[in-house]
């Protein structure tokens, strides 16, 4: 028979063993969870619609969205969901979208390649920033035109640019409208994707817009054409090279709307002409980082927009500020001779 002290001692030993075992188990579980839990995949493409480069670009852009703004934005291209709306809500829950963001901020873009539908599901925490009407506008006026041209990856990237611009606009106006909540209540929008269908030719037609007799007049006429959503690539105010470029390029209603909004508060400096008087630059003060300059060329005695050169020489950063492409050599450098550029091409005073 065990005596009392032996019993106590055995009990203490057993208790200590249990505590140690529990601690070891907890530690092991914690470690294995950290070690085994993979980082949530940003892109899943079951339909093979994305090229490797596009997939990498989306992953990179969405990783920035996560690090810069705490938004957990995932993309899934699937085949044949019976009901995309219901599937999106349940998938959002299943993938715990928002868990990799801050404050439960999450977005899920679902493209059903078989049903030719797209849905951007917006989590509860982001409904304040992305109302359904805005999401529908992004889908229909920005994403779908790229899808029509078969450029699914470009459409996703172009849509993300608008989402970023919306977040920045929220931040600039005093705060990021967010609701402290997780999951999805069914917010967002679904629309027909029209993948691979030909673009609507009516959208590429518009009334003629003559080039101006001064660089300022041409830039002003261009903004008016964009306000009227005139996507005709053959407008008189474009240079010859620009017309060739635009004929191959997808231009969306949302891009035109965004461009008009972007320049609304931009106040230009006086026009700068090169020595020959053939090229002109309209630029904005260096601190106006979201007002990219205009390049114009004199062709046929009228000033025409040289968007072809601008598109190769100018790039936009994650925060939509403009900068010169690294190593870009172009004929409009005279307009920026008094500025220095940092190693990433951002102008400095």
């Amino acid at each position: 028979m065990l005596d009392h002290s032996a019993w106590n001692s055995a009990g203490r030993g057993l208790a200590a063993l249990c505590v140690c075992a529990a601690l070891a188990l907890a530690l092991a579980l914690g470690c294995s969870r950290d070690a085994l839990a993979p980082a949530p995949a940003i892109v899943r493409d079951d339909a093979g619609l994305l090229a490797d480069a596009q997939r990498a670009a989306i992953e990179s852009q969405h990783a920035f969205l996560r690090s810069d703004y705490g938004i957990d934005y995932r993309v899934e291209i699937i085949r044949g969901a019976a009901d995309l709306d219901t599937f999106a809500a349940s998938r959002f829950h299943e993938l715990e979208i928002g868990s990799a963001g801050r404050g439960g901020r999450g977005l899920l873009l679902l493209i059903d390649a078989e049903a030719d539908q797209v849905r951007l599901e917006v989590g509860r925490a982001m409904e304040g920033s992305f109302p359904d009407a805005f999401v529908a506008w992004v889908e229909q006026r920005q994403m779908v035109p790229f899808f029509r041209a078969g450029a699914v990856g470009d459409g996703i990237l172009a849509a993300t640019e608008l989402l970023v611009a919306q977040v920045q606009s929220e931040l600039a106006s005093g705060g990021f409208a967010e609701l402290a909540a997780e999951g999805s209540a069914g917010g967002g929008a679904r629309t027909a994707a029209h993948i691979g269908e030909l673009p609507d030719p009516a959208l590429r037609e518009g009334p003629e817009v003559p080039a101006g007799d001064s660089p300022e007049a041409t830039a002003a006429a261009y903004l008016l054409a964009m306000r009227a959503r005139n996507a005709d690539p053959d407008l008189d105010l474009y240079s010859a090279a620009t017309r060739v470029m635009l004929a191959r390029r997808v231009v969306t209603l949302a891009q035109m709307d965004t461009l008009v909004r972007m320049y609304r508060d931009c106040r230009a400096e006086p026009v700068r002409l090169d020595a020959s008087g053939v090229r002109a630059v309209i630029r904005y003060p260096i601190e106006a980082r979201r007002c990219p300059p205009w390049f114009l060329v004199r062709e046929g005695e009228r000033w025409r927009l040289d968007l072809a050169t601008a598109s190769s020489a100018i790039r936009f950063g994650r925060d939509n500020t403009w900068h010169f492409a690294a190593g870009a050599a172009h004929l409009y450098a005279f307009g920026f001779a008094d500025w220095t550029l940092d190693r990433n091409g951002y102008p400095r005073g």
Binding site: D85, T86, A89, P131, D132, A133, V135, A136, W137, Q140, S184, A185, G186, G187, G188, A189, R190
Partner: peptide, 20 residues
């Protein structure tokens, strides 16, 4: 109209999700 239609569709979907 697009905006209203989107908001209406969103409302319908929220009803559906809320009922589920």
């Amino acid at each position: 109209f697009l905006a209203l239609q989107a908001q209406l569709e969103g409302a319908e979907n929220r009803i559906h999700v809320a009922r589920l």
